[in-house]
Amino acid sequence: MTDLSNLWPLLYRAFLETTLMVSISIFFAVLVGLPLGVLLFITQHHLLFKIKPLNQILGALVNVIRSFPFIILIVAIMPFATWLVNASHGPVFASVALSIAAVPLFARLVESSFNSIHSGVIEASIAGGASVFMIVTDVLIPEAKKGIIQAITLTIITIIAFSATAGVVGGGGIGDLAIRYGYYRYDTLTMVVTVILLIIIVQLIQWIGDFLSRREEGK
């Protein structure tokens, strides 16, 4: 491809695919990852809901998923993904694997932002007679809000990076365009444009994330 006007429709389509995959995956990453992060934290905290075996099982599960190279994870969960979305390729299909990869990452990030909360605040809340549920909703999450926003930012950017691999199952997206056209076909123009676009998107997300988390700090 030597002409930008030929590239434009491909790029536009790829952008939509990336947006779709990222949106689905970050939605599930937060939906499942946040409660999982909460569970990881409270099951190891002696004042909250300490259940050591549960904590160990969850921790091991998270570690196992995080150990998988993403491309192997995609292939490994193919049957499950096919059953779940009733399709065997495309961005929605790829989103299953992306979500599964993003959930444990986000959960760990959430857990570590809870860990940075001064333990005395939790102690004071317990001493005040608050229930564990209330401490989660009224202390842990508000106190870790800044960290959680940063975790979402980081998870989105990681999903974008992973989504390049989603091409193997026809997921499409900008990263896939860069690999298929730019890399395999030695199409320098496509390569340069897609990489620049990815840089801009990542930069933009980081900026928005930083802005939102700084706003929390302002309080």
Binding site: V121, A124, A130, E143
Partner: peptide
């Protein structure tokens, strides 16, 4: 009731919200 050396207030809540928290509890 209990008070602490490091105060241990919820930083993301205002003074009123901090007190409201234990009332709600």
């Amino acid at each position: 009731g209990m008070i602490f050396q490091q105060f241990n207030l919820i930083e993301s809540k205002t003074v009123a919200e901090n007190i409201n928290f234990v009332l709600k509890a």
